[in-house]
Write a protein that binds this DNA or RNA. Structure first.
Ligand SMILES: [Mn+2]
Ligand SMILES: [Mn+2]
Ligand SMILES: [Mn+2]
Ligand SMILES: [Mn+2]
Lengths: 218, 218
DNA sequence: ATATATATTTAGGTAAGCCTAAATAATCGA
DNA sequence: TCGATTATTTAGGCTTACCTAAATATATAT
């Protein structure tokens, strides 16, 4: 098993790459991990020596096959823990990320299996993010954000960005949680905000909020 | 919160001290933690600077009040996790120590509270060891070992040494788990072994085994 | 194309935790 | 009580993962 830093670097690279598609720059990774640029260059060389990633100076890093495996393993553990904390310990979806961020690094294969079994092998985490399989397969679901919906459409909330606890807290307060069914009442072009209907109430969502909620046609 | 090494050192000191009563020598601690003697001297100086313990060269270490608090917190988390893994994830008592040894260091106060609540504030762990309270109070229960029992006596198994997984596995196979009621059939002076009766069967326990099972008069 | 701005790496340091071997202190036996 | 044995500390090193500032490479704008 690898240590906390290694796993967080590899996971970070995987996630940044999913967003940009290209090689991940050391400075983007530094920002993501909240460490200095020089520290990343340093660490990235060591991870490259361990064959977890390919590093081309001034060009950025990409994960090797082994690296992707490790990313999958870490993400799987993270999301299983999030799910477990919600279902079995009464956490709400805005409280689990931090905990899972630490637990993911001290989870044996045995524990991973037992978490999975206790949850009935869930396919998504509390934020709607897919959980990689035991074998490391991850099918990314591509859902449009509320900001990209058509007026009058009816949708199911399929995923919510887990970036900020505040967004999650706010949505919880509104009642807009996973799998809730909403209708798009009005798209306000001017600032990208959206008015949705849920439970017979009209809810106003800022443009930023709308871009953090992902839906599926209902 | 402290890091893994710090917590394991402090916990180790607490546990060694409970057994011997006196200040803990650096070499005993080194053996316990499986690190070199010199490493312990090194670390112990740092922990002393942090006011977690008092270190007198050549005399050994004792925990400060703050140190004892940290030991209690760590032991509480360890034992709550052991209990949780057994009750909620189907682990058996010989499989939980290693897992808890890592989980104890990444457990927030919030998580500690939720584990405790989910378990109904248990007073002992799966091995019969008492769980410190939220406030850090620990009442050590003093039970005689089977090796110290009187022939013909009837007892309840109150605690089992969690030192070795083998002992625990063996006892599990025999069916001699916590709270089981046994009768002492014969104490064999020659080698300290004991024959006990449980569930209408006679079970032979080696001297070493007998010294690792602790009981309460029934 | 060249100067300037920005991104990235290098260099030199630090702290934590470990190791081994040498030095020294404490303890024990006769 | 003195010499030998044992326990403990010191010294010198190592690796990991950070930091900051200086140097250098790359990208951008005129
Ligand atoms: Mn993490
Ligand atoms: Mn999540
Ligand atoms: Mn531990
Ligand atoms: Mn235990």
């Amino acid at each position: 098993m690898q240590n906390q830093s290694t796993e967080d670097y590899i996971k970070g690279i995987y996630q940044l790459r999913r967003r940009t598609g290209a090689a991940v720059s050391t400075s983007d990774l530094a920002r993501h991990l909240k460490v200095g640029d020089g520290s990343v260059t340093d660490m990235v060389k060591r991870l490259s020596a361990k064959k977890l990633l390919n590093y081309v100076p001034y060009k950025g890093v990409t994960l090797t096959e082994v690296g992707v495996k490790l990313a999958m393993k870490t993400i799987r553990r993270h999301r299983l823990w999030e799910m477990f904390l919600v279902r079995h310990l009464g956490y709400s979806w805005d409280e689990v990320h931090e905990e899972a961020e630490r637990l993911e690094h001290v989870t044996s294969l045995e524990l991973e299996e037992r978490l999975d079994r206790a949850l009935g092998s869930p396919s998504v985490d509390p934020h709607g993010d897919p959980i990689p399989t035991r074998e490391g397969e991850l099918k990314e679901l591509i859902h449009p954000s509320v900001a990209e919906c058509r007026e009058g459409g009816r949708y199911r909330i399929a995923r919510v960005s887990d970036e900020s606890p505040e967004v999650l807290q706010y949505l919880k307060k509104l009642g807009l949680t996973l799998n809730k069914r909403i209708a798009i009442k009005q798209m306000i072009k001017f600032d990208g905000s959206v008015i949705v209907e849920w439970n017979k109430r009209e809810i106003f969502l800022s443009g930023l909020m709308a871009r953090n909620i992902f839906v599926e046609e209902a």
